[in-house]
Design a protein around this nucleic acid. Structure first.
Lengths: 230, 230
DNA sequence: TCAAAAGTGTTAGTCGTACACCCATGC
DNA sequence: GCATGGGTGTACGACTAACACTTTTGA
């Protein structure tokens, strides 16, 4: 039996952040991945991330990485979970403080067309977790990033029900149909239109504007997010 | 544009775990604190914790520390949040992966009477956060441990509503009054007896036993936890 | 005038909440 | 027989979920 002696501080683990950056485009949930052209996991895709600098918090590191890798500055960012399996990085011991971030599609495309970072579709129906568990050949995620992605998806799905995070994926003005599409994309399931609208209106989180989005059919009223009143 | 070369890994942050270990004794929520007889924060109380070993996960480190500092082995343990303020430890850079743990009072007293580790009362009414924010002189917590404790309390209060964690604070057999007292201790508020019992019964999480706890009054039926059926 | 998306109400079941009295036991 | 904690039911309001048709516009 191994008696663990008191651990010396200079065991020197590395600390990194990894970010699950999500957006919704045309009713589809998308995640930003970066391409690795170096070992380990050369030619795999991975979550954007990097090491935490010696004089910054993990939050700051995550924001810095988002700006550098995705060109994104205004973003909703929350800590997700910290992954600490000693074997998660084959090179050396690195613990990863994972974050999830949500951007609206209009802000979210600073980069992402580049060869180094691309948006990947998370599937249209409830097959999210399937997809993540059994990625196709094109998409074998590096390290434990598939775990991180799954954890993020299930956290966000849960949180969507009670926290006003859906709005983070939309621009300032949006239609109720767009909002519903965001919910459906995240939950991976269809929602009844009347019930959804009634519930959202009841919640008092949105305010109707006197503006309409005009398209090729009946114009849709625009709304804006207005946090709950305390 | 800065192509980020991997930030030199040897910035060598330390990684520690800190654990908010809670129990409920006689309707009072208690937290286990350890006494620091060394600098920094000499003569303060702190959450039990320690550095993560170079070959163990943070979960394993937390379990090891719980066993070492509190003599506790069977315990419900979940990761809470990772605290990464660069100044949180005045000696050197240490990030802390915080956990919360729940034990039933019957298991929870392996240690805790020792000079090094003691159970502290978290106040009987809804004044929890007040108490934590403005600790009396006896109780000024080391590092950012007051933050960690507050985060744990608010997480647990939230989670109590939808996850079966209340049972973790009770022995295998318990009365409904005991269960209600656990809920009241955590929420810091009184609960209506009839509503509580109806709700718990409805949830299908407990099973009635044909045993009774006999005391100085009418005997109370014992129940046992039985996870939700899938 | 037609295609397409916007918009709207009712019903039934379930859950939360407020509230007061009788029951079984030890002393 | 009394003090103490154990145990029970009902009514109202709010929310969930199922379900189909009319309105407005551009083409």
């Amino acid at each position: 039996m191994s008696f663990q002696q008191p651990i010396s501080h200079d065991s020197s683990l590395g600390v990194a952040v990894d970010i699950v950056l999500l957006t919704v485009v045309e009713s589809r949930l998308k995640v930003l991945l970066t391409f690795r052209d170096i070992l380990p996991y050369e030619n795999s895709w991975s979550l954007p991330g990097g090491f935490v600098g010696s004089n910054e918090s993990a939050d700051q590191a995550a924001l810095r990485e988002l700006k550098a890798k995705a060109g994104i500055e205004e973003v909703f960012l929350e800590q997700l979970y910290t992954f600490t399996n000693p074997q998660r990085d084959p090179r050396s011991r690195v613990v990863s403080v994972a974050y999830y971030a949500l951007v609206s599609a209009d802000k979210g495309h600073g980069r992402g067309g580049s060869r180094a970072a691309q948006w990947f579709d998370l599937g249209t129906d409830s097959a999210h977790s399937l997809w993540v568990n059994q990625p196709n050949d094109r998409l074998r995620l590096a390290f434990d990033h598939a775990d991180i992605l799954m954890t993020a998806l299930s956290r966000i799905r849960g949180k969507l029900e009670y926290a006003p995070i859906g709005f983070q994926l939309l621009p300032y003005k949006f239609t109720l149909t767009e909002l519903q599409q965001v919910f459906e994309a995240i939950l991976g399931a269809a929602i009844d239109k009347r019930n959804f609208r009634a519930k959202i209106q009841r919640s008092g989180q949105i305010r109707a504007l006197e503006e309409f989005r005009t398209g090729s059919h009946r114009p849709a009223r625009l709304y804006t997010f207005e946090g709950p009143v305390f």
